[in-house]
Nucleic acid binder design. Structure first.
Lengths: 246, 246
DNA sequence: GGCCGTTATTGATCTTGATCAAGTTACTCT
DNA sequence: AGAGTAACTTGATCAAGATCAATAACGGCC
């Protein structure tokens, strides 16, 4: 593995505080690998052998049931995914596929499980990471159960604006098809609703979002810090869609 | 606190493996308290000062937004809830109210956070608890996004039957109103759908469920271990509704 | 037992969102 | 550049589920 990769991984909350020697032990049995676009990295139900760290590219986490499929999250560099399955030594609950050419580091799950018994700082980091992930999914479930699709779209658009620094205009970080699935609706419905949202203070031009009347959009979205954050770690791990850039 | 309460708490996965001395440290600053029915124990957004352990009774976890409300889980003895908020030292994402007279032990969150730095076995237990809770919520989100309400009801009924030991007849462990909210639908819709499910192998008589043609119900529910479990810890913590008794 | 408030059911209607079916635009690949 | 594919949009229709309204059943409580 490259030196610069090791440094990036070392900067993750998960690995930041552990002893250098222990970090090296973990990394010695890990390896980086590049995957082409559209490759299924993980199939739900498979045993969780490796913690995955995305170095470059992006990965979609999705779930399947009875011939249906939905997007659960998109993971961007540099962050880890499916930590919980590794820890429980249980089958993956989600599948994963690359959205583009992606470079990933694979850390053997057995080494992880051994390590947090030996390194307290690492154990604490794992605890914090899991607690954050848990809270992210709870937020997500709240949004799904308490909001209708119009409100989910509005709050998503608003949150992306905040994450990009409060800008009024930005580009959607993912395809609309995928966004629709993430928000729990069909692509057609997203498209239609985006159009009707022009009356509520946001204009869509292709992948570009322009907030024309923030107050009106806020009145519709009713953003709530207990659903929409801010939550420092939520956007870094695999529990949300990636951040938009202005 | 009573000796028998301490013993029950000690048997929880979370506290089972830690050193006795450390357990006592945690318990010395904790206290048990009884609450009447219908009391709001926690309001979402409040700072997470205490880990809650239910000794007797039952507690509903619910979420509110914009005047709407939905049930997220029901916690039964003996188990803990809102561990993640305590760990993150962050506001509660969910509210909690007693469904009946309930006895609860409150453990100061600051003591918890100090303790998993000192006791590795406790840290490992916290890691396992959080990983399980995370997976439970993911299962829940999958069910909400991939299944329609008819399928959610069918799989819920089937799962309860399994949890009660594979019995063909059992009593619903919660009010239908609450079940409807947990499953993400209105009470009217649950009522109506339950009726139409008679054609699919399950009969409802008040709170009693009688599975008349299991194969037919299975064909509709398409139970999936990656959504419906089994998952040893899921039912013990605050991530699911309680288990039915036959 | 009978009263009262809550929960459950049932029916009628309405809204939201899904589905089906074209079209159009955008992107990729050679 | 142009063909081919995939993504997006738009319209028409349909189905699922919500809402509103009224009644029925249940569960505590004196």
């Amino acid at each position: 593995m490259r030196i610069e990769d090791l440094l990036e991984i070392r900067h993750l909350h998960l690995f930041r505080d552990m002893a250098q020697a222990n970090f090296e032990v973990l990394m010695i049995s890990s390896y980086a690998q590049a995957f082409p676009q559209g490759l299924e990295l993980i199939r739900q139900g498979d045993p969780a052998d490796f913690l995955h760290i995305v170095l470059e590219g992006s990965v979609e986490l999705f779930a399947q049931w009875s011939g249906r499929e939905c997007t659960m999250a998109v993971v961007r560099p540099v962050s880890t995914f499916i930590l919980a399955a590794n820890i429980r030594d249980a089958p993956y609950l989600m599948s994963a596929r690359t959205l583009e050419r992606t470079r990933i580091v694979l850390v053997p799950a057995s080494d992880l499980r051994a390590m947090f018994r030996r390194d307290t700082e690492f154990a604490v980091a794992v605890i914090n990471e899991l607690a954050s992930s848990y809270r992210s999914v709870v937020r997500n479930a709240k949004s799904l159960k308490l909001r209708n699709s119009r409100e989910r779209i509005a709050s998503y658009l608003l949150r992306q604006s905040q994450l990009a620094g409060g800008v009024a205009s930005y580009v959607l970080p993912v395809e609309k098809r995928l966004l629709a699935s993430y928000l729990g609706m069909t692509a057609e419905n997203l498209s239609r609703t985006l159009r009707t949202l022009e009356a509520d203070g946001v204009k869509i031009d292709g992948a570009r979002v322009i907030i024309t009347h923030r107050a009106r959009l806020v009145a519709l979205a009713k953003p709530d810090r207990l659903i929409d954050g801010p939550d420092a770690v939520a956007e870094q791990n695999g529990s949300g869609l990636p951040v938009a850039r202005g």
